[in-house]
Design a protein around this nucleic acid. Sequence first.
DNA 1: ATGTAAATATTCACCAATAAACATCGAGCC
DNA 2: GGCTCGATGTTTATTGGTGAATATTTACAT
Lengths: 143, 143
Amino acid sequence: MFIGEYLHSLDTKSRLTIPAKFRPELGVLPIVTKGLDNCLFLFPTEEWNSIVEKLKSLPLGKPEVRAFSRFFLSAAAEAEIDKQGRIVLPTSLKEHAGIDKEVAVVGVSNRIEIWEPGKWQEYMQSYSSSITEIAEKLVDLGI
Amino acid sequence: MFIGEYLHSLDTKSRLTIPAKFRPELGVLPIVTKGLDNCLFLFPTEEWNSIVEKLKSLPLGKPEVRAFSRFFLSAAAEAEIDKQGRIVLPTSLKEHAGIDKEVAVVGVSNRIEIWEPGKWQEYMQSYSSSITEIAEKLVDLGI
DNA sequence: ATGTAAATATTCACCAATAAACATCGAGCC
DNA sequence: GGCTCGATGTTTATTGGTGAATATTTACAT
């Protein structure tokens, strides 16, 4: 399970050092693609495969299914991890996420998310009020 | 069951010695994360797992649920207890709780809470005068 | 009260992770 | 052939995490 938040920087060649804590579970050939809310998703190979399988099982007749599959699959790229633990971020994905030099790398259970730090902070703040509400509800449920 | 209150200090590397009374029940790989009221939560592995299970059972379609997962998981960190009974407090969590050098470590049944001592004192004082009224409300809840 | 052991605080030293700079290689172009 | 550019690989310095040793305090038993 991926958890935690790390602030890393890209080198001049758009390479990102993956946090060492994530590497063992991520494997050597993860997949990076566009994510929701203007971030990037990074999956271990097996996780990626199971998601693609689920997509295949959806009815191709529905326009939304076709749209989402195209969004998700056309943007995907193999992100081989080199000996120093780095991956290259393709330019198109950098643009989608608004990434320049710094990124926030976030573990969210079965995936890793890559955010432009400002957007990440903004996103968290925009939900901060509802988060306390949800947290209180969860506490009521016995957590 | 965790009970009691301890005042401990961090070393220069942000390490906190866990009260010896807590260690046997806490296990060697607890999870620390953001808590409510500007404190930190420290859970034994099993407690953490059951909370994550409850989170997974929530409907993923709702944006607030996604936001809460991100909030809860990104703030979490494995807090491995070393041979001397210490854990490292990540900088982001220290900031969330306003912790500098001293902390109050508090046992609350199935979890441990970590407070900045001033906030802890303030919190207890703010409720101490009305504790009899609160107790009456609890009576309504069946206690 | 005093000695003993356990728990906690503090300091130092070392190693791994990261950032940044630099080097190498190959493909395409002039 | 020589040049440029992009991709990939290597090296080094710095930072931060990790471990060990010692000092100090506290708790307990005699």
